[in-house]
Design a protein around this nucleic acid. Structure first.
Ligand SMILES: [Mn+2]
Ligand SMILES: [Mn+2]
Ligand SMILES: [Mn+2]
Ligand SMILES: [Mn+2]
Lengths: 227, 227
DNA sequence: TACATACATTAGGTATGACTAAAATATGAT
DNA sequence: ATCATATTTTAGTCATACCTAATGTATGTA
């Protein structure tokens, strides 16, 4: 069923980071991912990216045609999803068990996600009660790389008087998350759109039927809701 | 009080491993630690050790005189103890929270010990209830590198009819730990020496006043007890 | 079609951390 | 005091992962 004939190839710490970045960039736009995109995401120079793309291409986790960007392969997707699974499980652990706030977990999880032990992740998953979403509302892939994502749309697309529930954030930067904490928005909060300003794309929302907040276009584009 | 004027220097993953090995070897014999000793402990070739000693010497975490072995400095001791602290806290986590057995934790902890976040370790320590000993009975240094070790001696030194309690194991290899599991010996078990065989150094002990076991010299040398 | 320019790759270099083989040093035995 | 041997270091190499500078490629505009 979910077994691999060929044994799972090992990636280095750095290769895992690049592959994860390529996976995320692939999800956004559908077309191929460019060297410059990866360079920006990874904060390394384009020349370094080219080096890495050659290596990832040889390992067949991406399809690499020089000058034409890359596509992630099925094998690559599977590996990237394993790293993402570990990242998100560790984030849940940090928030649920160690009382980290959701804006503090990203960097630490970026290190923890590379710990190799398979049994560690299985036990951690079990210990956390097999969570399906991380603290930012992102789905946690299962050990076969399957993701049960829930339908979600940017808060900006809700009409006046429409209601919904915050299920995730598109931007997980500490600055944005701390802003959300400050205004009392959180994953699970119930939202009603009270007013929309055509001019600047800002809106007024009611949170949990009690608190009225004004949010800028930048903010509402980065809050994902479920209706 | 415990503050450092100069900021704590950063060591690489590999430097941390070498320094930890040097620290452990220093604890055993009091004299200086040789290149070959480190080579054996680290499973790298002596030439690689010489390279690393030069680097660690430059960073002043060891005192390095070519051809005469090394001594760890106070700064080095402090850093090694931080790594050991992390290693042992993670071991406690794996056993107490994730139900690892004590023979499964070492390799995983050897990776986890290098995760950098200071707050992570503080929170983990708190979450675990500020444990003072790891699953193998070894003391956990505090965040300043202070160790409260309890007096302990090899089981081999107990006289006939003397009693004691297992507080630690000298050898933490999976093979040895699984043997102890099999015969029902564990940290905290009460021991009474029933008989000692001069010829081969083996002994007969009573565990928890109910189970009689024969143990070889190799085994009794590696069990540490408190009287 | 030509070409300016943005984008991407290659060439060459650095740092880390490993290796083998060769050379240097220390040490114990005669 | 000399020397054989074990130990240790150095020299030279390789792989990973980054960099800058130079070169090559694609693409849209003239
Ligand atoms: Mn990472
Ligand atoms: Mn997340
Ligand atoms: Mn380690
Ligand atoms: Mn231990």
């Amino acid at each position: 069923m979910h077994q691999n004939i060929r044994q799972m190839l090992e990636l280095t710490y750095s290769e895992e980071n690049y592959l994860k970045a390529i996976f995320h960039l692939s999800e956004e736009g559908k077309k191929s991912v460019s060297t410059n995109d990866i360079s920006a995401e990874m904060k390394t120079r384009p020349a370094s990216v080219s080096d890495m793309l050659r290596k990832l291409g040889e390992k067949e986790v991406i399809e690499y045609r020089k000058y034409y960007g890359v596509h992630i392969t099925e094998e690559g997707k599977k590996l990237a999803l394993q790293t993402i699974r570990k990242h998100r499980l560790w984030e849940v652990f940090l928030v649920e068990k160690l009382n980290f706030s959701w804006d503090e977990v990203h960097e630490v999880a970026d290190e923890l996600e590379h710990i190799k032990s398979k049994i560690l992740i299985q036990r951690l998953d079990e210990y956390l009660g097999f969570p399906k979403f991380d603290p930012h509302g992102d789905p946690i892939p299962d050990e076969y790389g399957d993701v049960r994502s829930r339908p979600r749309l940017p808060l900006s697309e809700l009409e006046i008087n429409a209601t919904g529930q915050i299920v995730a954030v598109k931007d997980s930067s500490a600055a944005f998350l701390r802003y959300l904490d400050k205004v009392g928005a959180y994953i699970g909060a119930r939202i009603k759109v009270m007013d929309k300003v055509e001019f600047d794309g800002s809106i007024e929302i009611l949170v949990d039927n009690k608190k009225s907040i004004f949010m800028s276009k930048e903010v509402v584009n980065n809050i994902l809701i479920m209706q």
